[in-house]
């Protein structure tokens, strides 16, 4: 299936179709995660009528993969009406939630309305650690109870595990918990800056030595090629695009702002002022993002890691230059290989 998704993504890029959209329905949340990159003010959120109209526009634009997220999307009283509408319009819906509000009734609705998969963040299998990160007492128990319900009704659940200082070293037990619950396990060792640009959250990133241990854990990185960087001569990659952001996917905030990606907060238009398709096709900001090829990156194009690096242009943008290196990805490349990055040796 992976290769067909890649094929469809390549075709979407060729045709200029936004194959995937990440739509945050609210930034309000019933947790207060210490690493959260969002504000939690709900003032000015899109109304149901606006979201309904937006969903029609997205379907007409060719969007297939729709991620509904937040904040906590189930805090919206009209969440299930939105979900119903999204499924009537035949989107492939993935839901990102902390699952705290998911009980029997919600599980039945999520299944009956045809959500393709549900992603829940679990930070530790120890309540005192998980709940200290979410700032919500009892949250681990409630999330786990909901995961059990969802899985028992045949829904596909992914446990996303973000590693940061307070839970470093907990991933093996969370992975075991995912296996016990019948959920897929994914891991992310990157803490991102606040969407408003504040970088103080980065202090939560794990230390270099811990990052090295994670990235060299062969049980996590099955492909041993990850451990050796390729030479930056591969024509396709050098001429390739950094990622799908702005090419075949984008992000829409609860207030209608369109960005290339949730991790690339470059304001590119607002659906209250323009039709989505006009933003997608004519936004100068998206045009700029689309114009960038790996060969155009002044530092990265000279780097030994250029073709193997996970460089995120959104993180680079938040560092001040969407054509620059992303220091967090430099750290990952170095931790993986012990080979210095171009960013480490430049002046």
């Amino acid at each position: 299936m992976g290769s067909l998704v890649e094929e469809l993504n390549a075709r979407a890029i060729e045709l200029g179709v936004p194959l995937g959209v990440h739509l945050d329905l609210t930034w309000r949340c019933n947790e207060r995660c210490i690493h959260c990159y969002l504000d939690h003010d709900g003032a000015g959120e899109l109304s149901f009528v606006e979201i309904d109209e937006l969903l029609v526009q997205l379907a007409n634009a060719g969007v297939f993969f729709l991620t509904l997220s937040g904040g906590e999307p189930l805090l919206r009283k009209d969440f299930f009406a939105i979900l119903r509408r999204a499924r009537e319009l035949s989107f492939n819906v993935k839901l990102k939630t902390n699952a705290i509000l998911i009980g029997e009734r919600e599980t039945a609705l999520i299944r009956d309305l045809g959500v393709e998969s549900v992603q829940v963040s679990i930070y530790s299998n120890q309540p005192e650690v998980h709940d200290a990160i979410t700032g919500a007492s009892g949250s681990l128990a409630r999330s786990i109870r909901a995961i059990r319900l969802l899985v028992s009704r045949g829904l596909k659940v992914t446990i996303a595990h973000v590693i940061m200082r307070p839970n470093r070293g907990h991933y093996p037990t969370v992975r075991a918990l995912a296996a016990e619950l019948g959920a897929v396990f994914t891991i992310d060792p990157t803490i991102t800056p606040h969407i408003n640009g504040n970088r103080s959250l980065l202090a939560l990133n794990i230390a270099s030595a811990d990052l090295r241990d994670v990235l060299r854990d062969k049980s996590l990185v099955a492909d041993s090629n990850e451990f050796a960087p390729a030479a930056p001569s591969d024509e396709d990659l050098v001429n390739g695009i950094p990622c799908s952001a702005g090419h075949s996917s984008c992000y829409i905030s609860p207030f209608g702002d369109v960005y290339p990606c949730v991790q690339f907060p470059l304001p590119s238009g607002n659906i209250r002022r323009q039709r989505f398709i006009d933003i997608w096709k004519h936004s100068p900001q998206l045009a700029e993002v689309r114009s960038i090829r790996l060969r155009d990156l002044p530092v990265c194009s000279t780097c030994a890691h250029a073709t193997s690096c996970s460089r995120c242009p959104g993180l680079a943008f938040m560092e001040g230059n969407m054509r620059g290196p992303s220091t967090q990805d430099c750290e990952k490349s170095y931790a993986r290989t012990a080979i210095p990055t171009a960013n480490m040796v430049r002046h």
């Binding site: 469809l8 492939n92 393709e116």
Partner: peptide, 16 residues
Amino acid sequence: AVAARMLGEEMMIMSI
């Protein structure tokens, strides 16, 4: 129980 969308001349369909 499907998601479906035209992409160019082809139709993408996913079984939920």
